[in-house]
């Protein structure tokens, strides 16, 4: 095999490696070039944030519209303060919408579902959700049931 052919084959080999890294980045780890840009932040306070974690999903009607940026504890109210990064083109979320923590499947990750309200006004960047619903806690449910409350 000639020297030229070998060089071409090695070049193709390196290109295949780069393509594989690109595939791992885009398709497997879901790194999209535009994530991070064109988003605005909303806040939601929960009594119990359950297993919510950063990079989790925020959805409306089952469609992903943003990600969870951070989960922190509010030291005054002892509530969990969750900041949500919402896609900029979803700018008409009604002001009385509620943020609800749900679980995908029985063992799946927890995510925030925005259940849409009917207000004419919409949430502005930096606003906080007025009503929220905390994570369903199976142990507390069983505890409540056992003690008859």
């Amino acid at each position: 095999m000639g020297n030229r052919t070998i060089e071409i084959v090695v070049g193709l080999f390196m290109i295949a490696g780069l393509a594989a890294v690109l595939f791992l980045a885009l398709q497997v780890s879901g790194l999209s070039p535009q994530s991070g840009g064109d988003r605005y932040t909303l806040y939601a306070n929960f009594n119990d944030s359950g297993g919510l974690s950063p990079r989790g999903r925020v959805s409306m009607a089952g469609v992903t519209v943003g990600t969870i940026e951070s989960v922190t504890l509010d030291k005054k109210t002892f509530q969990a303060r969750v900041s949500l990064a919402i896609d900029a083109d979803i700018d008409n979320i009604p002001a009385d919408s509620a943020a609800v923590i749900r679980t995908s499947g029985l063992l799946g990750d927890q995510y925030i579902d925005i259940s849409v309200g009917g207000d004419m006004e919409s949430l502005q960047p930096g606003d906080t959700f007025y009503s929220t619903q905390s994570a369903m806690n199976l142990e507390r449910l069983i505890g409540n049931f056992a003690s008859g409350r």
Binding site: V21, L24, A25, Q27, V28, S29, G30, L31, R55, G56, R57, G108, D109
Partner: peptide, 19 residues
């Protein structure tokens, strides 16, 4: 299949550490 994969795999923590 792809959606769960993308939400679980982190590029820096998983892919780069593997490399």
């Amino acid at each position: 299949y792809w959606g769960n994969m993308q939400s679980a795999v982190n590029f820096v923590d998983d892919v780069l550490n593997g490399v």
